[in-house]
Write a protein that binds this DNA or RNA. Structure first.
Length: 200
DNA sequence: AACAACCTCAACCGCATCAGA
DNA sequence: GTCTGATGCGGTTGAGGTTGT
């Protein structure tokens, strides 16, 4: 599905775009095997792909990397995503870090296409699958997330700052204090959060 | 069967942050 | 301490598929 718009941009940027072919995947995997998964611009060049390093990195992380799980997000995983999202907000990479084999991109897509809708319907008291009653993005991005955060948080300049701390259900959670890289507190939160309800 | 509306998800972009010189 | 290139992250886009009328 190489689209016209992408072709035009391809010409403009002198690099190929659009979906990856099996041949490209193979070349990329070989290049990574030889050179390692770093220096992506260099890998892109050495693999002979007309791709940007960023694209190669994304392809590797989301599809080619070993132990990637594809599709079929279980109820258990879904529950965990919802709980972690409530806890962390749109910190997809952190959420993905708690779900082995899942990528931040996949979780972000799953959230935007499934879970946000589900939660929206629950809050509105609308049947979850009724067509024509879709939340924003689709109407989806009726209000962009960052704007929503700003509105909720007041006048904070950036969305990043605004979610340093937030209400994680039972109380105000100081994210910055706990530290983003120490995941123990997340586990602790999830373990202690008995009786937790997504839609409360 | 044809069309329109809607959904999904792979892929891209811009910005922030990190790391090395 | 500063600069620069590499990397990581979240937001957004749009083609193709699906479903409803």
């Amino acid at each position: 599905m190489l689209m016209a718009s992408q072709n035009s941009q391809c010409t403009r940027k002198e690099s190929s775009r659009g979906p990856w072919t099996a041949e490209e995947d193979q070349k990329l995997a070989q290049a990574i095997e030889i050179h390692g998964a770093r220096r992506w611009e260099s890998i892109a060049a050495k693999a002979g792909l007309g791709r940007r390093g960023k694209s190669c990195r994304l392809r590797w992380l989301n599809y080619l990397r070993p132990n990637i799980k594809r599709g079929n997000i279980s109820d258990q995983e879904e529950d965990l995503i919802i709980r972690l999202h409530k806890l962390l907000g749109n910190r997809w990479s952190l959420i993905a870090g708690r779900l082995p084999g899942r990528t931040d991109n996949e979780i972000k897509n799953y959230w935007n296409s499934h879970l946000s809708k589900k939660i929206w319907h629950e809050k509105k008291g609308i049947g979850a699958t009724s067509r024509g009653f879709m939340p924003p993005r689709s109407r989806a991005m009726e209000m962009k997330t960052t704007d929503k955060v700003k509105e909720l948080e007041g006048t904070s300049k950036s969305g990043e700052d605004s979610i340093i701390s937030f209400n994680a259900g039972n109380g105000f959670f100081d994210y910055s204090k706990e530290g983003p890289l120490n995941l123990e507190w997340i586990s602790k939160f999830l373990e202690e959060d008995e009786g937790w309800s997504v839609f409360s």
